[in-house]
Write a protein that binds this DNA or RNA. Structure first.
Lengths: 138, 138
DNA sequence: AGAGCAGTTGACGTTAACGTCAGTGTAACG
DNA sequence: CGTTACACTGACGTTAACGTCAACTGCTCT
C-alpha cells in the first residue's frame, strides 16, 4: 500500500470512440494530432487512452482552429497550458508566443465587431427596401 | 442626363501592383481570386484593372479569411454586398446565408472572449508564480 | 473455435489555396 | 531599336489537414 504508481488516473481515461463522440472528430483526426505531437494518449497494449490533459488540449486545438489558426500555430501556444513544464526557458518562450497570440486575438475581436456591425448594416439596408417581408422568426 | 453609361469609373481603377501593395497579397492571389469569380477586374488589352467594387470585395475576402472562413464560404456571402443586383431570389438567398454567417460570427465572438479570458488567466498564473520552481499539482 | 467488431498501422489519395516556372506580350526607356 | 521591366497565361508543384483503404491485431460473444 505504500506504492501508488498510478493514482486514480484510471478513472480519467477516455477511449478513442468516446473522444470522437464528445468532440465530434474522427479517429483519423486524433491519430493525426498524436502524430503531430499535439496529443499523447497513453497506450494500453496498442490502444490509445486519452487523458484529461489530452481532452483539455483537444478543446484548445479545436477552439484555435475555429479562429483560423493553423495546427502549427496552435501547437506552439499549447505548451503554455502545461504548467507542469519546469523548463524555464521553454516556458518563457511559450509566454512570449502566447502574448503574441493574445494580441492577435484581441485585434481579431475588434475586427470581428466591425465585421458584425457591417454585416448587420448591410442586412438592414436590404430589409429597409425589402420587397417581400419574409416568414421570419428570430 | 438620362444616360450615364460609364461615369467617372476611369479615375477609380487600380493596377494589379497597386492592389498587391495596398492589400499585401501577391499577383497570383488576385488572379486566383479572379479565376474563382471572387473578383472581376476590367481588362485593358490583356491587363487587369481593379474597380472600387473589387477593392471592397477583396477587403471582405481577406477579412473573412482571418476569421477562418474558406473562399467558398466567403464567395457565398459576398453577393450580399452587391446591391446593384436586382435578382430577387438570388438576393433573398444571399440574405439567408448572411444571417447564418452572422450567427456564426456572433458565436465566434462569444467564444473568442472566452478564449481571450482563458489565455489571460493562464498568463496571469505564470506571472504570479514567477520563476520560483514550485512543484504543484492541481 | 469461429465470427464479428473496434482499434491500429502504413500508404496513398484529396482538397484548398496558393507558389513557381517557362514562355509570350507589350509599354517604356535610353 | 534593343533591352529592361512588369504583366499574362498555362501548367505543374506544394503544404496543411485530413480521408480512404488494406491488412493486421486483439476482444468478446456464442
Amino acid at each position: 500500500m505504500i506504492q501508488d504508481p498510478q493514482p486514480d488516473i484510471q478513472t480519467d481515461l477516455t477511449t478513442i470512440r468516446a473522444m470522437c463522440d464528445a468532440f465530434d472528430v474522427t479517429p483519423r483526426t486524433l491519430r493525426f494530432y498524436e502524430a503531430k505531437k499535439l496529443l499523447n494518449p497513453v497506450r494500453v497494449g496498442t490502444r490509445r487512452l486519452f487523458t484529461r490533459r489530452d481532452r483539455a488540449r483537444l478543446k484548445l486545438i479545436l477552439r484555435g482552429k475555429r479562429f483560423g489558426f493553423s495546427l502549427e500555430d496552435i501547437s506552439q501556444t499549447l505548451d503554455l497550458y502545461d504548467r507542469d513544464r519546469s523548463d524555464a526557458a521553454q516556458r518563457q518562450r511559450a509566454c512570449e508566443i502566447a502574448r503574441e497570440r493574445l494580441a492577435i486575438m484581441e485585434a481579431q475581436r475588434t475586427e470581428l465587431d466591425v465585421a458584425i456591425a457591417d454585416l448587420k448594416a448591410e442586412l438592414a439596408k436590404v430589409d429597409v427596401r425589402g420587397h417581400a417581408p419574409r416568414h421570419e422568426a428570430e
